[in-house]
Structures are given as C-alpha cells and as structure tokens.
Design a protein around this nucleic acid. Structure first.
Lengths: 151, 151
DNA sequence: CTATAGTGGATGTAATATATCCACTTTGTC
DNA sequence: GACAAAGTGGATATATTACATCCACTATAG
C-alpha cells in the first residue's frame, strides 16, 4: 500500500528536470548527488522513465536527460505508472483479471472507486504546478489529520 | 501500491461475518473453507482483526468469531488499517515522519490529498452496505476505463 | 581518439509477504 | 473429569519483491 522508493526517486528526478530551462539537460550523476539517490539505481529508473516517454536522453559528453514533454503535461500519476505499471490497488483491479466471483463480489467496485479518486486527485496537478513556488503546502496537515481521524 | 493478500482475506472474512445474523459466530475454519484461505494464515489475520477491535472471538467448542461492532460501523478503510497499520501512500506521510525537506518538498501535499481522497471514498460505504444486494456493481467498469485513459 | 554519459545484463542482499507447524489455553459437552 | 473443538501464540520456512551494485558496452562531443 505504498509507492516504491524507486517511484519516489523518479518523482524527485522529474521535479529536478522540471526546474531546468526547457531544452537543457541534467546528468543522471548530478541528480543522484543532489537527491542522494544511488547512481546505478537511478540509471535504471531513468530507463523506465525514458521507456514510458517521460524523459528523453542524450548520450556522450555533454549528454544527460530532459523532460520528453512539457512539464504541464506530466503528473505524478504518470510517473507512478511509468515505474510501477498500471495502478491496481488490488489484484482484482488489474487489467485483464477475471474475478472468479464474477459480479457477485461487492468489494471491487468500492476499491475501483477509491482508486479512481486517488488517481483523479494526482492528475489535478502537473509538474509545472509543483515546481512553481507558493502552492498549497498547508493542505498537508489537513489531510494528515483526516488520516488520523481514521484510527 | 497494492493492498496485501492478507488484507483481502480480512475483507472477505468480515463480509462473511456481516452476512450472518447478529450475535452468531462463524468458525475460522469454515470461513477459510468458503473463501479458500489457508486456515493457519487466516488465524493470524483474525488475531489482527481482533486486536483492532473489529471482531470478537469465542474459544472452545461452539466458539468462533463475530463482528465486534455493527456492520454499519465498519468500512474497508478500517480493515486495511487493522491489517496494515495506518495508511501512508509514501514514507513521508507516515505518522511521526519528519521530512528532511521540511516544507520545501511539493510532493507530499499532493500525495496526502490523493490519499485523503482514497480513504474518504473507502469510508463512504460500510460492510452493511456491501452485503445488501443490488448495489453499484456497474461502476467497476467505469472506473477501470478511467484507469486505462491514464496510460 | 579519448573522456564522458547513457544502455543493458547479471548478480547480490534485504525486506516483506505468504504460509506452515506445533504446542498451548479455553470452553462446551458427554 | 475427560475429551474434543476452537482460538492463541511463537517459531520457522519459502517466495516474491524491492533495493542495490558491478561491469562490459555504445554513442558522442571535442
């Protein structure tokens, strides 16, 4: 019930890229230093991001990586999906899965709605929104409180 | 980014309990048969549910387990929490965690909101709602479609 | 041609999820 | 009171996944 550390690395990486003027590249090594991410591991992560079409890469001296599309068009949902594959909060929501309880199971609809709400929320803000200062940091506390209310 | 199988076992177990007349118990063994859950594993699971105050247990012959509170007062969010502990979609949302990037990190607010939306959705329906027939099974397909739209 | 930087495969390690075994306690019934 | 049924709890095993490292390779700017 958590995004993986690799996904978090990916998010932080893309945020770094989003902060850089369009067209410029950043070296993976540099990002790994800034964000304290093991280089070799970050390299793998970047490959997944490239495969998903979120970053493009340039080899050789002066090489590096950059966003493959405008920061306005990338959301955290995209990043999670790039690293972890399609989001499926439970096995029964995985694409192609056929539930043995075909329609009699009342749980999957609920999980599906919750997952939908989750993704919808993540799609509301782009990387561009996130890197521009003065956003809504206060909401963190609010929502954390709500989580506490649960238990 | 998935609930564990154990959590799903727990959900299915509580649904079984919710279907039974109030005050009656079900044996763990019986539930494990009906739901094809390894008995020994289910026993552990039930212990967690009991610890969380979701089921109460009766030992000895004629023993078994039952809901510890009305089915109207139990949601899937409660069950997830009982088995997996407090929901924290990412490390930085875990209770007591202090982010090294204290307030400069734009990600946690977004994740927190998404997680909030997720939990809120799960809290909208109780076990009682789920076991009564004729609910909203159609929404499954709708929300799955939306997930596809993402990729 | 050489240093730089991404590519890709193999491998290792740790953590977690899943499951099993078994000895023990409680309790209803004969 | 003995016995069987049923939950309790600890130890252990296995599988899967997450996380990480190593290294040989390829492309490219200067």
């Amino acid at each position: 019930m958590q995004i993986t550390r690799q996904t978090e690395y990916a998010i932080r990486t893309l945020l770094e890229l989003a902060k850089v003027p369009k067209g410029e590249v950043l070296q993976v090594k540099l990002i790994s230093d800034r964000q304290s991410i093991p280089v070799e591991f970050l390299k793998k992560t970047v490959q997944l991001l490239a495969l998903a079409g979120l970053v493009s890469t340039r080899r050789g001296t002066q090489g590096g990586i950059m966003l493959a599309r405008p920061a306005e068009d990338i959301t955290i949902a995209d990043i999670i999906k790039a690293i972890e594959g399609p989001v499926a909060i439970n096995l029964c929501l995985e694409p192609g899965y056929v539930c043995p309880n075909q329609g009699t199971c009342p749980v999957s609809p609920v999980l599906a709605r919750a997952q939908g709400a989750f993704l919808r929320e993540l799609q509301r803000e782009s990387l561009a929104d996130l890197v521009k200062p003065g956003s809504d940091k206060a909401s963190l506390l609010v929502d954390k409180g709500e989580e506490k209310q649960l238990g």
